[in-house]
Design a protein around this nucleic acid. Structure first.
Lengths: 117, 117
DNA sequence: ATAAACTGCAACCAAATGGTTGTATCAGAG
DNA sequence: CTCTGATACAACCATTTGGTTGCAGTTTAT
């Protein structure tokens, strides 16, 4: 189980960070190329401080990292975190498959349902 | 592009709905088997109304559907919505790949960068 | 017909979110 | 050294969120 690295709190932060269009856009841009905070701020119709807060949220969720370069902080998207989110969603798929399996078993049996677990 | 069905608002709701441990658990349970709202409420250490609100959030995000059965409302997880979330994350992966491609091009060239697009 | 179980919804509350402005720090340019 | 650009951070504010209690409406059971 590769996902056990993540606490429930971590998962909360991860999905919450993705639940904002500006932040998703920042992640997209910084996955393609490193961008400074002020470059990002120029792109959105809000204050520098607001963009900075979004970056901070993404950083706490570890969806981006920051690296000092002179007086700028370059923001870089962290693909590994995206992959962790994907793995979490994969688990939901597996659960769903288990429902199908249970149905199959029921259909294949003419005995009463087996003791649970 | 299969994801264009989703507005930014839809995506916000989708990820926000997933950003709560109780709601994720409800989705997991209702993906495996249909469960009534009161059965769900029994499982968590909060009021019935609180659980009902969580279900409502999931319903708005279309992560679950409800179906009347007698006096109960059976909650059923909607895998398709999970898959849409996965596709959204896949797009992030593709963007990241484009970064690599760009690097490859730069390394392979000794001419100045080609006109973009 | 009554009572009990299941649900929906409104009103309320504390805390978190997403934005603002203002001030301070820090690195680079003149 | 001084000015400017880039960032950080605090204080503040409106709205949303996640919880509560209370009440009303339906469906089932007695």
């Amino acid at each position: 189980m590769v996902v056990s690295e993540l606490s429930e709190q971590d998962v909360n932060r991860l999905f919450r960070a993705l639940a904002d269009a500006t932040r998703r856009d920042i992640v997209r841009r910084t996955l393609v190329t490193d961008v400074s905070v002020s470059q990002l701020a120029d792109s959105y119709d809000m204050s520098f401080a607001a963009v900075q807060k979004h970056v901070a949220v993404l950083e706490e969720a570890r969806l981006v990292t920051k690296e000092s370069r002179g007086r700028e902080r370059m923001v870089r998207g962290n693909l590994e975190r995206i992959r962790q989110a994907q793995r979490l969603l994969d688990h939901f798929e597996e659960l769903w498959r288990s429902r199908i399996d249970r149905l199959d078993i029921l259909l294949a049996e003419d005995e009463p349902a087996p003791p649970d677990t």
